[in-house]
Amino acid sequence: MSAVDLDLEGEPPLRATLRRMRHHKGIVFGGVVVVIFMLLAVFAPLLTPYDYATQNIANRMVPPVWAGGNWTHPFGTDHLGRDYLARLLYGTRISVIVGVGASTIGCCIGVTLGLAAGYWGGRVDRFVSFLLACQLAMPTILLAMALVFIIGPSTLVVICVVGVLHWNLFLVVTRAATMRVREMEFVQASRALGASPMPIITHDVLPNVTSHIIVIYTFEFGKAILAEATLSFLGVGVPAPAPSWGLMIAEGRNALFFQPWLVIIPGAALFLLVIAVNLMGDGLRDVTAPEARQ
């Protein structure tokens, strides 16, 4: 392509994508909210003088500042007198770490299987499709509960279990994209020139399916956060006294009628974070792979 062509086409594709991202309301809103949560997670110790696990029985069930509380504990305290803002802030870390960890594991499994199935097709594809059918039929929550219970609850176990059970979307999307890219002329050319499968997959196919993978990664990130919260809520997730938002909701459940903020606050945080992540995912799909939009 000559320089004249480039001028006629205007800006390079990467910059065009970034410009579209800046003008997409969902990406901007979602991105800002996600970045704020990330900052809260990183700087939690600087934002609150309290520890998330220190109990103060004399000071339990203090309401938040808007419900008649005081500014010493802006979000109040829980049934053990622990500062609720501190728990919420440190809880952000758990959600973000589980989200990143679990979706990365799911991504590795799903993308590897998807590349293999899409590139080789035939018997490999049939085997992978069978694995997919089995995974889809697995009762995810029940299996995750059983696994966490067997191995013993910890944050790392939750990350692994959620990751291992959430790879189907990565697989489906990578497989379809790989099948399309595989038939393109430049890939055919590489093969005709004698390139072996691995370099073709890593150099030709993978870069061309990355945008699809990023979109799925975003959605799975949100799903993993919800899955962790659900498991912790059911009592087979992150163990106490860690401030998982799901666990906070479970602990506040007994006080739902008289101290509803104990349930409302962590749930609202969870909702806000996941909706921001999903809006980002929707937006990224709009700007990078609009044809994948349903």
Binding site: T230, F233, L256, V263, I264, L270, F271, V274, N278, L279
Partner: peptide
Amino acid sequence: AVAAQAIPNFWLGMMAIL
């Protein structure tokens, strides 16, 4: 649709009860 996708189901249940 976007909101329903992001809302934790157990939390929605408790809010409905409340």
